[in-house]
């Protein structure tokens, strides 16, 4: 069993679906961090069997909407004095801006400079979004 110290002040991103840990790690640019961080992959989980998790020994600003978009089952724990002071359950954001790109070659986003790609959640259960401009469907399949 791998042992990693608990953190005294910082953030634990828990219940990450196996395989997503690394992309979240990269998205949060934790590879450039000058504080203690740990990416744990394939950790045992009561809920899912296996999970990834990330421990960050620092308070950093996290875009919760984006994180929810990558994986809505994630829990974000805020740690102070080695205790969880806040538990945030994520959900799919209603609107996603500048994160995913519309794949429709006929969409205005394919030619306009400086346009921000925007998607609106239309079906929470299936994680379906549509492009705000051309209505192209984007399905997040985990």
């Amino acid at each position: 069993m791998l042992y990693i110290d608990s953190i005294s002040k910082g953030i634990v991103i828990d219940h990450i679906q196996v395989g997503h840990g690394f992309s979240i790690f990269k998205y949060l640019e934790l590879d450039k961090a000058d504080f203690t961080v740990a990416l744990i992959m394939n950790a045992p989980s009561k809920k899912f069997g296996k999970k990834d998790l990330i421990k960050i020994e620092n308070k950093i600003d996290i875009d919760l909407a984006m994180l929810g978009f990558i994986d809505p089952n994630i829990t974000v724990n805020i740690i102070e004095n080695e205790k969880i002071v806040e538990k945030i359950n994520l959900s799919l954001p209603k609107k996603v801006e500048g994160i995913i790109e519309c794949k429709n070659p006929r969409c205005v986003t394919s030619t306009e400079r400086n346009i921000v790609h925007k998607f609106i959640l239309i079906d929470e259960q299936n994680g379906t979004y549509k492009c705000e401009y051309c209505d192209q469907i984007y399905s997040w399949e985990g």
Partner: peptide, 27 residues
């Protein structure tokens, strides 16, 4: 009228006057 889908909608965000979509691609 614009060949790109969603172009009139994008235009409407920057317009102080009414925009009528006269056809945007196959949209």
């Amino acid at each position: 009228r614009h060949p790109k889908e969603g172009a009139p909608k994008y235009a409407s965000y920057y317009s102080s006057i009414p925009i009528i979509n006269a056809g945007d691609g196959g949209h």
